[in-house]
Design a protein around this nucleic acid. Sequence first.
RNA 1: UCCUCCUUAGCUCAGUUGGUUAGAGCAUCUGACUGUUAAUCAGAGGGUCGUCUGUUCAAGUCAGACAGGGGGAGCCA
Length: 483
Amino acid sequence: MFNQRTKIKELLQKGQAGETVTVMGWVRTFRNNQFIALNDGSTNQNIQVVASLGDFSDDLLRRLTTGASLKITGELVVSVGKGQSIEIKAATIEVLGDSDAEKYPLQPKKHSLEFLREIAHLRFRTNTFGSVFRIRHALAFAVHRFFNERGFVYLHTPIITASDAEGAGETFRVTTLPMDGTAKRTEAGAIDYSEDFFGKSTNLTVSGQLEGELGAMAFGEIYTFGPTFRAENSNTARHLAEFWMIEPEMAFHDLEDNMNLAEAFIRYLIGYVMEHHADDLVFLDQRLAEEEKQKPQQERAEMGLLEKLRFVMDHPFERITYTEAIQILLDSPAYKKKKFKYDVAWGIDMQSEHERYLVEKHFKRPVIVTNYPAKIKAFYMRQDDGCEPGRETVAAMDILAPGIGEIVGGSQREERLSKLENRMHTMHIPAEEMSWYLDTRRYGTVPHAGFGLGFERMVQFVTGMTNIRDVIAFARTPRSCEF
RNA sequence: UCCUCCUUAGCUCAGUUGGUUAGAGCAUCUGACUGUUAAUCAGAGGGUCGUCUGUUCAAGUCAGACAGGGGGAGCCA
């Protein structure tokens, strides 16, 4: 009966001296041949188990090594020592699994995040990754709660798709055709995908948005939350080849409704974690503060983690148009002193140095930039009416967060069939393959909007982890697919 | 993909103008101690210096290629 165990988190919150309890977990340290710091993953806090001198054999005590798993039964008592209020006086100790201390890679000492990345299968057992992944879980749960409270339908859009129409990036091909060059060819010499599993060329999804729109045209409000794949050769601390994305899509919403929802959503997620995982946030706040101390003064973040999260909770995001953003950059001391590597002019796709300037230097808070030039945005974004010729814009919005960059990208969608078809034509999007998408505009089209939020970037923002590989359990990046 | 830095013990790092037997802290092991908090004290074991090629009487040290990693950029979420 393993289920008789009490979780350590519960024990530390509600445990009363005098109770007999059973705990199970992994040894973090074993001090002085008497004191076991036991952790079961329910919290970063360990329970101290006292193996009183003489109560246990030397053979058993020798097996209480870092990383070993134990089942312990004993009485909860008020601690004589200073570090904890209660502890367990062990009556029985059973070693469930030994751990050779000479080989076990996690030592009772500080490890670098780079080293822990190499042993990602064991890093959950550290305080940092314990906190990060409990918070990741809480954020995922809060995503569903937020949308469920608002009547959104969770739509599972496909992982394997045939369309690459969005042009969101390079795709991973899905095929069962032989890779040895014997696949049948068409007369033109191209690989004949009619012979493939699905009878056509298919790939892993880069976005569930288009399918999401189909759902919104019936349920009103839907959201997707699933894995997304990009075969981009991106080697940065902000990109993964496999990541999770949340994409709500709402009928009867315009750009402003969209922004309001996105902002409320982000605040809700942060609030949920602050309420339910305060202890993990405090730990990560201290961890980040330690890390910041190692950096030169100039590179240090202006706010600590908790300070930043509280600030975001208390202050509305800044909202500016793309045109205003460009003007701010042109007027900035940085521009006048030629500090930017890339030039600024209306029509450019803003570089990360420009976005960082707006967010981290000028406004010092999250910024929503709207109404981008049509030329640099996707075909499905709604064309703004009454634009000056040559300055056509679309109802797009990006939310830029300090330290992360773009955390949300969204838009009001083009619901007018002829305008959408014209745009697809000029952008060379094959309308005939997208007939199913255009049907939503043919039959009962409505103004609608939606956005995508990169889940890992949100986890980064809330945990303060600077490398995206440290907020997903097993990162997939170019030339790296371990575990 | 580009720029840049790095790769020496299980981990984090020193290693002088190229020169004999490559060091430290932590971890591990052994012993001591026994209310400890990443315990403490004493001792011990542990390294083909990322790989290959070259320069040289001599390479951890110099050069090149490759591999892996960090930071930045591009692309983006």
